[in-house]
């Protein structure tokens, strides 16, 4: 709890800088408008107007908060104008992709730890696979999958999966190898089979690593889902809101979608953190 005051100070500083930058960035437009109407603005008037534009370069925090309140609480969650609806669309793709990616990563990690050929041949390519900027080719993947009849949730989930399997592979390989020689020897003296060694020693030992990489994977998965929504023609989802906002210059809408994405990321990562704490506590590791 001793971090509360510093954190609040930093957040406050960010808000102050935000309001200040809003004045700086929006000033020009307000001055131009005033010059056109032959009005002379006093400084307080100028500041007030920079914080209340329809399409500002940088909306003030309270404008974004108002828009968020308007689209989250005041609209029906099933309506297309509700941000909850868009967040739901993005979240379902994120969670599906995250689930698939975690399963794939888990399977690959078990293969890599238990099979020498896989260890030598697959691991370098798993690393190389991440140098391909999948986010950059997301549009193509969506279009190609659409062409062979896969559309809707799955293409976005595939991109999320591609992004989220990597941290799980790396973390789980590390975790499954974390029991030291002494512990492995102990299992051998109990004449444990390979399956028993896996279920009783390696898997429990890898849990902290698994949760740490699942948090990274979830964040990556959300980014994948959002970028995956960009080329779908702006139908639904937070990515679509971002794209529509940037087409029509609706900065307030962009910022509220961004904050919603941030809240979603925080909630999903926080959920994993909660599961982590409960699981590790029950295993006696925390």
């Amino acid at each position: 709890m001793k971090n509360v005051i510093p954190v609040l100070t930093v957040v406050l500083a960010i808000l102050v800088i935000w309001y200040g930058s809003a004045v700086m960035l929006n000033k020009q437009w307000v001055l131009d408008q005033a010059a056109r109407q032959d009005r002379v603005l006093t400084t307080p008037e100028l500041i007030a107007e920079t914080w209340a534009q329809d399409k500002p370069k940088l909306p003030a925090p309270h404008q974004v908060a108002l828009e968020l309140w308007d689209t989250v609480a005041m609209k029906k969650p099933t309506s297309k104008r509700s941000l909850v609806y868009h967040a739901w669309v993005t979240m379902s793709a994120t969670v599906l992709g995250f689930g698939l990616g975690t399963l794939l990563g888990f399977a690959l990690a078990v293969g890599i730890v238990y099979n020498r050929v896989m260890d030598k041949s697959v691991m370098p390519w798993v690393i190389a696979s991440q140098t391909i900027p999948i986010l950059a080719i997301a549009p193509m993947i969506i279009v190609v999958l659409n062409a062979i009849g896969i559309s809707g949730l799955l293409p976005k989930a595939m991109i999320s999966m591609y992004l989220s399997f990597f941290p799980v592979v790396v973390g789980m390989v590390k975790g499954l190898r974390s029991p030291d020689a002494m512990q492995l020897d102990q299992m051998r003296t109990w004449s444990a089979t390979r399956a028993q060694e896996f279920w009783r020693l390696r898997l429990p030992a890898s849990m902290p690593y698994l949760f740490a990489s699942m948090k990274i994977a979830m964040a990556a998965s959300l980014v994948g889902a959002i970028v995956g929504e960009l080329p779908t023609g702006a139908v639904a989802g937070l990515g679509a809101r971002l794209l529509a906002g940037s087409y029509y210059g609706q900065t307030i809408q962009i910022w509220s979608a961004l904050l919603m994405a941030a809240a979603l990321a925080a909630a999903l990562v926080g959920l994993i953190g909660l599961i982590q704490r409960i699981t590790l506590k029950r295993m006696g590791m925390a």
């Binding site: 510093p6 930093v10 980014v223 941030a262 925080a266």
Partner: peptide, 23 residues
């Protein structure tokens, strides 16, 4: 600053930063 900025930095590092691209 360390105690204040680090939790915020950790939080921001997990956010979909790519979303600020249009802005």
């Amino acid at each position: 600053l360390r105690r204040g900025l680090l939790p915020v930095g950790n939080f921001v590092a997990a956010l979909p930063i790519i979303g600020i691209a249009p802005i």
